[in-house]
Nucleic acid binder design. Structure first.
Lengths: 363, 363
DNA sequence: CGTTATTCGTATAACGTTACCCATATAACG
DNA sequence: CGTTATATGGGTAACGTTATACGAATAACG
């Protein structure tokens, strides 16, 4: 058997068998060493590790997947353009890399077709676990997948489902922070700009922000205005925004579901000669890098994307190593007061009032 | 054999064998249908496809990887924050999805350690091919990997290496566009802001832009100033920029290696009361979304990221299906003239002058 | 009608791991 | 000393595909 191999002219792939032969031990021994399983002496371990180093052996993940763990997790994103995703990914990598795990990212492009296809590919690759970031899939579908692979969802507010874990930032409170900041500035007509359904299901972060907004308005005893909604892929998006800004009965203070639209709206207002914040105050969501620019200076809600990523990774690791009960984590957002809010001084008081305290990570 | 299975209470994974049994055909037959290989009648195909649909069968990519194609490619990014990456990924997906391929993304975070580790993981997963975007690895290392898996590099100017394909935007011309646009505005002191070595090797896009800048300056007979360089991870980055702006002998017109820094510099100038473009004209690189904002309005070089992604995907597919000779593609950048450049009218002439023409894609 | 292609379908050996079970040697114990 | 633990190592079926080789049936041909 080994003789036949030796006759081959081209250098073949170095497999676990090559290592075993080189070290003069059994295949099982090598496997045990790489998995650091029980029942291997120091002498054996040394021999095997030396051979591995010399030969440059790397186990085939494909073969591992057929039998055991692959030490790889999948991360599913809705789209890459959303400015808060890099932070989340950074957080995930910061936890995964030291744990000797690699993260592979799939981009769903907001199409549930592609989204399920990617999830299934990751399952079929026998990845050890999945982090779904703001998935648009219904809970029972995710639950179904969760039977086949450990899953933690980020930005998915469903405390009922026990089959997978969730890690969230308190989106209702995020909206409340915005409303109360506006209120502290003396605004009485506060509106919200959101997304039309279809791009946002009941448990999505966007809907939660709407709920939080309504509750906060009611709590404050302010006028309850209908929430403006624009479809994400509407072709005449710009026109709709323009009309909105031009509408004389529009609110003077606007809370926006995402910086993505807040910045666009701000830009459009500038273009139309509408002064921000004097004629229109805006608070966005995600505290994306652009909002911090001096020439933009847009107040925004920070969800702590990196922290979300870290927690998601830790939660996933603990589930991979056997935890069965569902974990539901919730961290608190903060308001980053900036010029678009109005007078910054008053706003920073609000910020302190809601002092962020994290839910402790258990187990 | 099958009887033992039937006794099991929990529903087991539906494998190729399950399908074969359900359809009353051989395992090989099912495999042939899924791969649409030669030698299968219409009747057989129908039977198998029906069973597949009923049972919801999906081939295990792990097992496929052990034997054949996985219909998945890997994409390696340096870091996710770079604003031109989303376009590239979009372009890749646009080509890959219809071809029934999935793209898995790995993020290297500018650490060659993590970078190689991810590449190796992708190889070990038996992915069908790799797109490396602006890799920081030396050519011989990439060449080595290319022996194990089809590779196309984007943003890697090495026309000598025959073992892998490259798809690039003409970075030298991009720099030339900037210089000539400045010149057309009447600027005589034109500078460039770049990165220190270490983050940019000889064949990197950044170095190519430097080369293009120098050549263009010389060609125009302008004063040859040293190129300013700042390390990407320097802790006192902001201070260095501030000093640069304050330096009375700094150029009046500045070409910047990336919007990432161009925007930062612009913002800082604004903060310091230095007027753009009156006291400092700027041209960035990548034409990222932020540059288009009315309150930023930063001229920038557009590399056509989506087109780069599409070409890379097509090139990779053709190599996967057997092409052996190396393909080296080059597309042309365009200048997007905006306020930071000075008088826009003159600039748009330049733009027309360099009319973008793409290199035809060759099989 | 015999010979040769062509078409369709199957049996089976890989692919590179891991998990389970067993074999041996040595130590511990009564 | 016989019996039972405890380490340490190896043999070998899986895992779910694909690729090769081959058999059988039918068609084509002179």
């Amino acid at each position: 058997m080994t003789n036949r191999r030796a006759e081959e002219p081209e250098r073949e792939r170095v497999t676990i068998r090559t290592v075993a032969a080189h070290a003069g031990v059994s295949v099982t021994a090598v496997s045990k060493v790489t998995r650091n399983a029980y029942g291997v002496s120091e002498a054996l371990r040394k021999k095997v590790e030396d051979s591995i180093a010399i030969l440059g052996y790397r186990p085939s993940r494909a073969a591992q997947g057929l039998r055991g763990k692959t030490h790889t997790i999948g991360v599913l994103l809705i789209d890459i353009r959303n400015p808060f995703l890099p932070d989340v990914i950074g957080g995930i990598n910061d936890v995964m890399a030291p744990a000797n795990y690699r993260a592979m990212i799939g981009v769903g492009e907001s199409r549930s077709q592609l989204e399920t296809s990617l999830i299934e590919s990751m399952i079929d690759y026998k990845m050890d676990g999945l982090v779904l970031v703001a998935p648009s899939l219904p809970a029972d579908v995710i639950s179904d997948y969760a039977r086949q692979i450990p899953i933690v969802a980020v930005g998915y507010h469903d405390s009922g489902v026990k089959t997978f874990d969730t890690v969230n930032c308190n989106d209702q409170k995020g909206a409340a922070l915005a409303v109360e900041a506006f209120q502290a500035q003396g605004y009485l007509d506060i509106g919200m700009l959101s997304l039309v359904a279809g791009h946002a299901h009941k448990v999505s972060v966007v809907r939660q922000r709407e709920v939080g907004f309504r509750k906060a308005i009611k709590r404050a005893g302010l006028e309850e205005r209908p929430i403006a909604k624009i479809a994400l892929e509407a072709p005449d998006r710009e026109n709709i925004m323009r009309d909105y800004i031009n509408n004389p009965s529009r609110p003077r203070a606007l809370f926006c579901w995402s910086d993505l639209d807040a910045i666009k709206l701000y830009d459009m207002a500038t273009d139309m000669g509408v002064k921000v914040p004097d004629e229109l105050a805006i608070i966005g969501y995600d505290n994306s890098p652009t909002t911090a620019l001096r020439r933009i200076d847009l107040a925004s809600i920070d969800q702590g994307g990196a922290r979300l990523g870290e927690l998601a990774a830790q939660t996933l690791l603990s589930r991979i190593s056997g935890r069965k009960d569902a974990v539901k984590l919730l961290i608190e957002p903060t308001l980053v007061p900036r010029n678009s809010l109005g007078r910054v001084d008053a706003a920073s008081q609000i910020c302190r009032m809601w002092e962020s305290h994290e839910v402790a990570y258990e187990r």
